[in-house]
Design a binder for these strands. Structure first.
Lengths: 236, 236
DNA sequence: ATAGAACCGGAGGAAAGACCTCCACTTGTT
DNA sequence: AACAAGTGGAGGTCTTTCCTCCGGTTCTAT
């Protein structure tokens, strides 16, 4: 049933070709993890020590490669969710889950993009998403029954929360490893039904210099810095 | 001293030219507000009913136009901060400030980009940022002295908080007007020193369909959807 | 060993997008 | 009326991305 190796494979790959296929997969995993899905197949090829042509011979396009790669990653997320659900303390389960998710996002920008975008992975990954959703709903419900999660929280809010955390991950990326860890407890403190005091923040604050460089290289707007030409003109 | 109208203006613009200059400014404000700083000067020209050449005659490049436009916007933010600081209840001041900031971000994506990027606005706007920073520090300090803001919060965290909120603004944009309003109180509940119960959420939750379309058109990853070609190839 | 299918590399085609220039033509001003 | 100032928008240039093509190489079956 595993679609990566169809039951009646037309023909096994030549030995060198199979080796290269593996190399591509490994390289793609690494490059996507580091740069997110915006990475180019050219980049991946280079990182694998192969020509682009070879990559395109094996995978018809980027989408196919992504699909082949991230099923596994999504399975991992599904497992995390199951673990969270297995915790008798649903709130702790949720806390752990969101923390783990943040770790996953920080460790693998490719997987983050697949998780958060819905644009990639049209087939198999979409199914995964559908399997996770009801689990999330149950988790939320149970945490509320146990009185720890704010009653007005909804399962659909989880995506927004993940996005918020993702923003901090991206923001601190390349500036301070794990800088995002400071913000996960803060967000979670906002989700608890009520609390006396505060969850301790183990991650120290960002310094002014950290903040500066984080803003400088924040990816979303990096493009703008390309053309800083600023010749004056008389009639501005 | 105001650089927008130098003391010895070389020559006043011709009447039609001045009119067009205003048109450009207005159009730029609108287009940037709607699409963020990624908008093209070509777009702006079209929206102003003028040719690109006219725009480039008046402003040497995009950067200059942005600089000319957003000083005013930044002044507005500075004023918001002052108002927040004027509130004897510093926590309420902070709550109000972050809410207003979110409103600003939602209403004007261009201003959001200028606020959050540090890439644009090399001169005057950078000064603005420097003026706002100490005010933020004072606000945080006072809110903590009054015991309402969590003691481990720092002024440098404000940027991360704004980014989180910005993520929700963008996420809900085009899906549900003001959908982000649901998340600001949640985040703020995470910043309070302690609380009994929860701030009421006036904004209703996102439905499954909202969520779906939000994810579909989330700008960050829209590109990926362009080439959904997915022709199969024998040896995948 | 050798034929020939399978495979490889990477230059470069194609398309899209962004910034900006150029210059023939129009308009305002004196 | 003369001419400086202003205008429009086609298109140059540059960059980026995806992907194809094909001459040359390597494996493998016989």
């Amino acid at each position: 049933m595993d679609p990566t190796t169809p039951p009646a494979a037309p023909r096994p790959l030549r030995r060198d070709a199979e080796l290269n296929r593996q190399r591509i997969l490994v390289a793609a995993k690494e490059v996507f993890a580091e740069r997110g899905l915006e990475a180019t197949l050219d980049e991946i090829a280079k990182h694998a020590g192969l020509g682009v042509g070879t990559v395109y011979r094996r995978f018809p396009n980027k989408e196919a490669l992504i699909d082949a790669l991230f099923e596994e990653g999504f399975a991992q997320i599904l497992e995390l969710t199951e673990q969270a659900l297995a915790n008798p303390d649903a709130w702790q389960g949720l806390v752990g889950l969101l923390t783990r998710m943040a770790e996953v996002q920080a460790a693998d920008f490719g997987l983050r993009d697949v998780m958060l975008s819905e644009t990639y992975g049209r087939d198999r990954i979409a199914q995964m998403r559908d399997r996770i959703k009801p689990m999330m709903e149950r988790l939320v419900e149970r945490a509320q029954e146990q009185g720890r999660l704010r009653a007005d929280f909804r399962a659909t809010d989880i995506m927004a929360v993940q996005l918020m955390i993702s923003a901090t991950v991206e923001f601190t990326h390349g500036v301070r490893d794990g800088g995002w860890r400071r913000y996960v407890p803060m967000v979670l403190d906002g989700l608890s039904a009520s609390r006396d005091g505060v969850t301790e923040l183990t991650e120290p604050e960002l310094g002014d210099d950290d903040l500066h460089s984080a803003m400088q290289c924040w990816p979303r707007y990096r493009r703008g810095s390309a053309h800083v030409d600023v010749r004056r003109q008389q009639d501005l």
